[in-house]
Computed example of a mutant assay.
Amino acid sequence: MAENRAQRIARFIEPLRVRPGSTVDLATDFDPRYKADLTKAEGVALLAEGVELLDEFQARLAAQDSRGVLFCLQAMDAAGKDGTIRHVMSGVNPQGVRVSSFKVPSEEELDHDYLWRYQCRLPRRGEIGIFNRSHYEEVLVVRVHPEYLRRQRLPEEGRDPDVWERRYREINDWERYLVENGFSVVKVFLNLSKEEQRQRFLSRIDLPEKNWKFSSADVRERRHWGAYQRAFSEMLSATSTPWAPWYVVPADRKWFARICAAAILGHALMEIDPQYPTVGEQARKDLMTARRELEQEGPGSGAARDRKKKRRK
């Protein structure tokens, strides 16, 4: 049964996987409205199943306490990162999950190498760490806005035209290091169409309860849509590796994006296949001793009857 479930999930997410070594063109290779012939009603049931699976495997991951998972989410504004995290992780123990968001780097962060702040927020063994935006900002927003690179106080030779190729290599090496030390790296790009983003921005403006989500900076960033699409395409091509492949999730339908994210994370946990620890013979004997003591305190035990007699006196 478990093997059939794993195979079914693997087949479902395979069309979303960026084959390592391939060249990606987002405009032609991935459809933001793809939904695998599912209806929304079917999707609701599948998401519930996925959340239940994550709950099961996260508990085992925490109990085993030898492996961890880093789940990276990248996307354009309004693609649904927050909602994806909220829905996909709705059934798991919050003590075993840590979510980190990365905004404009602080002065302290700028005084370190560009990966330092991400290294500081990595999950511990037994945890699922979620990066809401991630170290890939360093080859996306920093690339689209060269002034951000200048603020990173790099030496002159660190700002030459080869900087992006170097960063792809450094990121690949860093992720390989994490994987080899027991931390699976799961990477999801929520692929939103430009028209769907426009509609979501309008909704944020028109609905008072969504006004807080909107900033005029979102529209200014939208003007760089083409540059971002090129940066995303090159990033996916250069950093989808056998040890940490990218998955491009269609994001125009929020319900489908959430199913995909749950399936991708669930598949990673199933590949780890964490197990509850087993206790040794002496520990088992101690458990049986404790059990007998607890049973003797039960309502029908001799000890319980003696306590009752004393109360009557």
Rank of each mutant, 00 (worst) to 15 (best):
K310N: 02
G158R: 13
W246C: 14
V24T: 10
C72W: 00
W212E: 06
E127L: 03
L115F: 05
E170K: 10
G300M: 07
E14C: 01
I171V: 08
G80E: 12
R60W: 04
G182H: 08
D82C: 14
Y136V: 01
A79G: 14
S22W: 00
A304G: 03
Q74H: 03
L38S: 08
G91S: 11
E138T: 04
V104Y: 02
R8C: 01
R167Y: 05
N172Q: 07
G300D: 09
S90W: 06
H112S: 10
Q95G: 14
A45R: 11
C260S: 14
D218Y: 00
M89N: 15
R284Y: 11
N93P: 06
M235R: 03
W116K: 10
P146Y: 00
Q275W: 01
N4M: 02
S237E: 04
R153M: 11
P32C: 10
R98E: 12
D25V: 08
V179T: 15
D55Q: 13
D113K: 15
S216M: 05
L54N: 14
F214G: 04
R284E: 13
Y228S: 05
V44T: 10
K308Q: 09
S184I: 07
D111T: 14
L122N: 01
Q152H: 11
A41H: 07
S203K: 14
S240T: 04
S193K: 04
W174N: 07
V219Q: 04
E107Q: 11
E175F: 04
T278L: 13
D273T: 06
V139G: 02
I205R: 12
R67Y: 09
L294D: 04
S90A: 15
V92L: 11
K35T: 14
Q296W: 01
K313R: 12
S106F: 08
L190C: 08
R67K: 11
E297I: 03
N181R: 14
A217Y: 00
V104K: 11
V88L: 13
Q282F: 09
R312W: 02
V24P: 04
E56Q: 12
S22E: 04
A27E: 09
R166A: 07
L122G: 00
E56Y: 04
A227M: 05
R86L: 15
P105C: 13
D113Q: 13
P208C: 06
V99A: 07
Q197C: 07
F12D: 03
W174G: 10
K194N: 12
A36W: 00
E170L: 13
L70K: 09
M270C: 10
R284G: 15
A217R: 06
E170C: 04
K308E: 10
L61A: 15
E175R: 09
S106D: 09
A45P: 02
R291A: 12
F201R: 14
R98L: 07
F256A: 09
L265E: 08
L140S: 02
L149Q: 14
R33P: 00
